[in-house]
Design a protein around this nucleic acid. Structure first.
Lengths: 169, 169
DNA sequence: TTGGAGTGTCAACAACACTGACATAAACTA
DNA sequence: TAGTTTATGTCAGTGTTGTTGACACTCCAA
């Protein structure tokens, strides 16, 4: 079902779609993601925090004053799961939760000064690796990288992603 | 430390290394990885298996007759963690463990017929998404994608990755 | 006023990772 | 041969992160 499936005659133009190429892509994704999270993980291991805290901090920092529900959609976890994380972050003074002015049911989340500092530390580590990879690969490769990643997202996630990229949309 | 090392005048050639670009890359990676694992996760949710089983099955299928130790290095988990997974896979008849002929301390792991079938099912789902993304992005983007991912891996992982790509090395 | 949305919380549970300790068999080495 | 190292398996305990399900409260809108 997959020997160069849609090739016209011999399909040499579609060699990048062979099973072997796809498998390599899958493995590359697996190994790269490990590297991608390794640096922040190391930093967080020393604190009482984990990857979930990092994600929350990242997206709160990225979209300040976001609501819990919005964050829930971005992170794709249950509110109970997110709440456990948020509770510790708020208790530790890294995140501030403010009742909405217009809709008072909503809580708007913002990083405190300490929260911004931790965000910066984690972000620096992750960006350093990203920067090194980007620089090594070059701008054309980076453009391709981004294109494939976007195509790989679930469509709902593509929405969240675009909104973060360009908040005016 | 990176303002326009090779830029002509104001560094427009390195715009892809700005913090904003890096952040977008980080987020793209996060959302894409979610998509990447979503399909196999859905299939596994119905069984008593999880992502860890998928990974084990994938790499055993990829490098048949691999030893436990080798798998341990590839997966980057502790033997206790891997063992828990392997035990269930062997008990369920998806993986076969054979004492090594040369070194009898080693166990060589292979997928059984049932194991290969499950591997195929999971792999089909994941490859389908990968193939769609690849096709949508085109060969040049795919090449860039792979280049960036390889640059993002830890160097030890790059070794495992290459060996899987080209077992003769 | 009623229904539903947004939020917080409790309890229970499962998957998957970790550390530490110990056991066994085989292989290597002095 | 005796002692050490390697490869593996296993037991026990723990932590993070996810899940369901249930319930309460506040507030918005029809």
């Amino acid at each position: 079902m997959d020997r160069r499936s849609s090739g016209s005659s011999s399909g040499e133009a579609l060699l990048f779609l062979t099973d072997e190429q796809l498998r390599q892509g899958i493995e590359a994704m697996f190994f790269a993601y490990r590297g991608f999270t390794a640096d922040p993980d190391r930093i967080l291991a020393d604190m009482a925090y984990g990857r979930a805290h990092h994600r929350a901090i990242h997206f709160i920092g990225r979209a300040p004053s976001t609501t819990v529900n919005n964050l829930l959609n971005i992170l794709g976890v249950t509110k109970q799961s997110l709440n456990r994380v948020l509770r510790t972050l708020i208790a530790d003074g890294l995140v501030e939760s403010n009742v909405g002015r217009i809709d008072k049911r909503e809580r708007h989340l913002t990083l405190t000064q300490a929260g911004r500092e931790l965000e910066q530390t984690l972000s620096d580590a992750q960006r350093a690796r990203m920067r090194a990879a980007y620089r090594e690969a070059g701008p054309d490769a980076v453009a391709g990288f981004r294109t494939v990643l976007e195509a790989m997202m679930d469509s709902e996630m593509r929405g969240s992603y675009s909104r973060l990229k360009d908040p005016t949309s």
